[in-house]
Design a protein around this nucleic acid. Structure first.
Lengths: 321, 321
DNA sequence: CTGAAAGCGCTTACAG
DNA sequence: CTGAAAGCGCTTACAG
């Protein structure tokens, strides 16, 4: 009772007794075994983090960490520790369920993320009533899961508007083979901005269709494309590299932008034009919702979009005539 | 016994029984409560991570993550999960012991890091026999703790040699108020390289001594200094900013380098000259040692230095005459 | 305040 | 293979 700081209430403990107990504990180097506490109390004060695909297929490792910073901050705020589920991460069939058994139970609830989740697992997790929040919009037919996402639609509209105002009319949207919700949102934003420019055209490409990738440049040229919108920052970097090797100058010869946060764009040493994501805020919000859900303070599913912003840089410029 | 995959050995289970048990478990959606297992077995398969000072005083948040990547990878390899101790991190008196009670006990052992640890805590942790590995060289008089560090001495010697070969003779080593082991190693490396250049001079400065910081430039000028070695990357960035605002050109007017990993050095958009740290490898090695220690496969203290390398960039150049 | 009991969900012998 | 018991280290009533 002393060590738990009277949390029980009811029983008064004299200051003398209290200090004697504390002194004895300090003397013995005693600290309560947290596992015993957890078993008896049923609350572990643990926010889990599970990432589908250890290495993000569309983004670098670094992409993960700003979210984690947000998760950490809010977990700390809420007096929770953070548990990274890495144990089964490098197995072939890496997933939440191993031998059909939920491996997240040590955490009171979990934040999930990753480009391409196993939707069946999410459904089952939902059906079991395990508390979780997905980072990124993910729709599971028939159930409303909690998610916190970037408002790509608005960001993409801003990006497209930027290009249109610079005079570009023939543009390419380049992505990988994935057609998940974030990509749909980006495309929707682009189309929305293009409504007022009936002569504008946005052609979609799968970068992986071009082998060797140099063929992509030929296609761009053939189509008279003057601006490229890259779905993910990895693509942005690859394409910049390609253009650089081909001797093209930015932004005189062509404009390129990234639809997710990009760092200083080597090899050109130009400030990248990109949609800046507020990843930390997304991590914080997801964690806040998760903890509320764990505490039973939420009944309705939470689906939140946080604003993101297009930031013009030096990789986009006016259309050359 | 079925769910634990015969780990007990001895008792044979027929394939029929086995599949019936598994089917029943799947049917019920049963998964063993990990807390029960932990209490009964005594092994939690948890690698803890505790960082002194949530925000690194000398480095950015980003500095932390490459280590964490390494920790995650190796933990995953060893079938361990990773526990980030954030729960007490934002308390004023944030430390390992709260009310003199060890708060790391949920993890079987922990990786510790941060510029300025509480050495008394480390000693106590050591005395209690709690398994831990420090990231970075830290000496505790009277006990040999495990640590894994960057070999700053070699890296610093390379950096200094680089400057000397470019013709620089009057140089500044700029640091914060901290005088911990890493700084000592860096200085030792510099001095070693200077042995063959008796006319070379390295002046030490505390950046915080100069308020406003512009006064630092005056001092640099007055002393005829032509190259600045920055202890940490944050200092590197601050000083570049300062030089930029003063209209100085790099590397014509002055050379600057960072003694830890630096990213593309805004505001100049030049590739930074810096010591590149192999943070991921340090994280991996620390975790490997920790797990060996947990498993009792280590008796002697492990103190390991991993190589790091000076990478010349565009922020350093030949001395102008 | 004190003491003894039951229970949290497992594992580990042990007897059959 | 099966069953019953003890124990891991706590918390939570409950009686005194």
């Amino acid at each position: 009772m002393v060590l738990n700081d009277f949390t029980n209430g009811r029983i008064a403990i004299s200051e003398d007794t209290r200090s004697r107990v504390l002194a004895a504990a300090a003397d013995l180097g005693y600290a309560p075994n947290p596992v015993g506490k957890m078993l008896a109390q049923g609350n572990n004060y643990l926010v889990g983090v599970f990432a589908y695909h250890r290495v993000f297929p569309y983004e670098t490792d670094d992409f993960f960490f700003p979210y984690l910073t947000g998760i950490q901050r809010e977990a700390s705020e809420q007096k929770y520790n953070v548990l990274l589920f890495t144990r089964y991460q490098n197995t072939e069939k890496a997933g939440i369920y191993n031998n059909s058994m939920n491996s997240l139970l040590l955490a009171d609830g979990s934040i999930l993320l990753g480009g391409n989740p196993n939707r069946e697992e999410l459904r089952r997790l939902f059906d079991e009533g395990y508390p979780f929040v997905y980072i990124g919009r993910r729709e599971i037919p028939g159930c409303q899961i909690n998610w916190v996402a970037h408002d790509y639609e608005t960001g993409a509209a801003e990006a497209m508007e930027h290009l249109l105002e610079l005079g570009h009319r023939r543009m390419a949207f380049v992505s990988t083979d994935a057609t998940h919700e974030p990509q749909q949102d980006k495309l929707a934003g682009c189309e929305q901005a293009m409504i007022e420019y009936p002569d504008a055209r946005l052609i979609r490409y799968q970068f992986s269709d071009f082998v060797p990738s140099k063929l992509f440049l030929d296609e761009i040229m053939a189509q008279g494309i003057t601006a490229i919108l890259c779905d993910y920052s990895i693509l942005f970097e690859e394409i910049l590299q390609l253009l650089y090797q081909a001797g093209m100058r930015l932004p005189q010869d062509i404009s390129v932008l990234s639809m997710t946060t990009a760092t200083n764009s080597l090899p050109y040493m130009l400030k990248p034009s990109h949609i800046q994501l507020n990843q930390r805020a997304v991590g914080v919000t997801a964690t806040r919702i998760l903890v509320q859900r764990i505490h039973g303070e939420i009944d309705h599913p939470q689906q939140v979009k946080l604003p993101c912003q297009f930031v013009p840089g030096a990789t986009t410029g006016p259309l050359k005539r």
